[in-house]
Nucleic acid binder design. Structure first.
Lengths: 337, 337
DNA sequence: TCTTGAAAAGAAAGCGCTTGCATTTTCTGG
DNA sequence: CCAGAAAATGCAAGCGCTTTCTTTTCAAGA
């Protein structure tokens, strides 16, 4: 089997130096068009592709950015990732995705792995993580951006929305409709600032009405159908029965709706259910899910543009916030009188 | 800012040569334990991580495998990818995922990009693609495996299941229940052997009953909710109305169910709907979706193991087939008398 | 104590590419 | 047509690591 062609092979055939070939590949405008086409012909002849390692070594860049997300198993991050990838691809940057399964240790591992692969930048979900990780990132000087959460005074570049405010808005609407028996199924708040903020948001709204979220009315579960259903069954067994279950995300809400149905109850007549994130799932449930719409794609695009901006490090626009909107569909209605 | 530490730094501190440090990193057992721990201390002190490019250049491997999938936007490939990634991670191999959006040109592009990144192996979905791509792959000698489809005499390593047989089984069951007005919403069959095979399977079964799939009873649509719903609305407007709509995948089926509902019909009383793939979605629909269960995770694992097996190239087990199972849930019932 | 073979460690040659600097070629205006 | 400037190209030094070959160290038997 013949060895892969090298720059030298191409250069030889085109009758130029390897430097010129390299230039044709990286800064074509710096080479006379005549030479350029000769080189291109040689490249085509050998079906030459630059060796990634050689390139990375010499230029100290990989044109790769990494993203560490909690999971691919549900569609929550899919749309954002897709947008991120598309935006990066426009600049010939490849996206490498790793999953951490909501486990901080595993996340740290994955971050290290990606850094080891020499990613030029990193996209991380949320802000909550061990300071040592941020220290490592800064020490290595690898640019990174946090997505899916946002605080005005976040010390790192971040692109997201105010989870707390969004949850608060949802809860306010719930209360406005007259609900007073409010229960919540949140994601696991530990090490998850988004889940935490969403709980706080709901608490805020309740407090405004002189209510609070009793411990027995709040369950934290993993983000999956079965867990959501189990939690809902538990909550619905209480007396008085909640008239609404506010869920930490759409997947949990879907599970809750399943539980409602399996208990012989009907949503929203007997109990309302709300979600968060507005993934496709929300549109296939029956009733359609009232949820918080999140700008998935725009977050992905913004993250890409932050990462691709070289002057990113010079403060300025390192902090992008998007609005969320409340999408009212069938799963939320006033409580039965 | 201080430059990233190199092997030499570590070697210097540990009082050994770079060769020894390299050995500690790659074949620890070949270094005396005393020296080894000295080196490890130095590594820790510098928080040293090998430079990816350097390593790739010297060893000519990247410990990376690439996967090109049609899309991340729905969960169809998520579980399989997750499994693939986990299996690869056990061997310290990183997975790079790219999407092609069911576009052959884009897929070719992505494959080239991944090859350019020096992946050690490639996972591709399905078998249908331009011969030139296979030629390129063979020329470069990059191992690859096709997943999600399978043929006994597939000339390339593949891991999947018999889409046609699975669809045939589903259709047989449909017919067995008494349906005779059968319609199908397939994925776009062009450049998609799985979608094609599924249509063929349904045709097979119909033929066994002396029926055929009239052109007016078969619609091809992209794999998304809206398209599925639109197709279903179209099919349901016909007279006589189909008593069952067999869908090319679960997402389409979900769309179809939405359409059924929006037309004021009820499934399965007025019309049955079946899916294919058995993704989570199937479990949140109302009624629960009758579908074909596909061994997502096992395909991912098998693909990983094929790719990680060095002697993969020597024929033998390059061809793995899994069984699918028919999962009967609520969305399929006998036609109304 | 000395030999000897195996184990451990070192020296150094690249791997394929980019890039600063030097050199040559081409272009421009007088 | 020529000098000087600008553009195009070449030269060659690495980038950080792995690996072959060689040398040194070690342990055990004689």
């Amino acid at each position: 089997m013949k060895p892969r062609p090298t720059l030298e092979d191409v250069a030889g055939m085109a009758g130029v130096s390897t430097a010129t070939v390299s230039r044709v590949l990286n800064q074509p405008e710096r080479v006379r068009s005549e030479t350029r086409s000769r080189v291109k012909a040689a490249v085509a002849h050998f079906d030459y592709t630059p060796h990634f390692g050689g390139r990375a070594l010499a230029s100290n860049r990989t044109n790769t950015v990494g993203a560490v997300i909690p999971t691919m198993e549900n569609a929550i991050f899919a749309r954002g990732l897709q947008a991120l990838q598309e935006s990066l691809a426009e600049e010939a940057v490849t996206l490498v995705v790793a999953t951490a399964n909501y486990d901080p240790a595993r996340e740290a591992d994955q971050i290290r792995t990606l850094l080891g692969r020499g990613v030029d930048g990193l996209v991380l979900i949320g802000e909550a993580r061990d300071p040592s990780i941020y220290a490592m990132l800064e020490r290595r000087g690898t640019p990174f951006v946090l997505v899916w959460s946002w605080r005005a005074d976040c010390p790192w570049p971040c692109v997201g929305f105010d989870n707390r405010a969004a949850a608060r808005a949802m809860a306010r609407r719930v209360l406005e409709l007259g609900h007073r028996q409010v229960a919540m199924i949140a994601g696991i708040t530990r090490d998850n600032d988004r889940a935490t903020a969403r709980v706080e948001g709901v608490r805020d709204a309740l407090r405004e009405h002189g209510l609070n979220l009793n411990a027995s009315r709040l369950i934290e579960t993993p983000y999956n159908l079965e867990a959501g259903a189990a939690a809902a069954r538990h909550l619905l067994a209480a007396t008085p029965r909640p008239t609404v279950i506010v869920c930490g995300n759409d997947v949990i809400a879907a599970g809750a709706l399943n539980a409602v149905r399996s208990l012989g109850l009907e949503a929203p007549a007997d109990v309302s259910v709300t979600g968060f994130d507005d993934i496709d799932l929300a549109l296939v449930l029956d009733p359609l899910l009232t949820t918080v719409h999140v700008p998935h794609r725009r977050m992905g695009e913004a993250a890409a543009s932050l990462l691709l901006t070289p002057h990113m490090r010079n403060a300025e626009v390192r902090n992008v916030v998007f609005e969320t909107t409340l999408v009212e569909r069938g799963s939320l209605a006033p409580p039965r009188k």
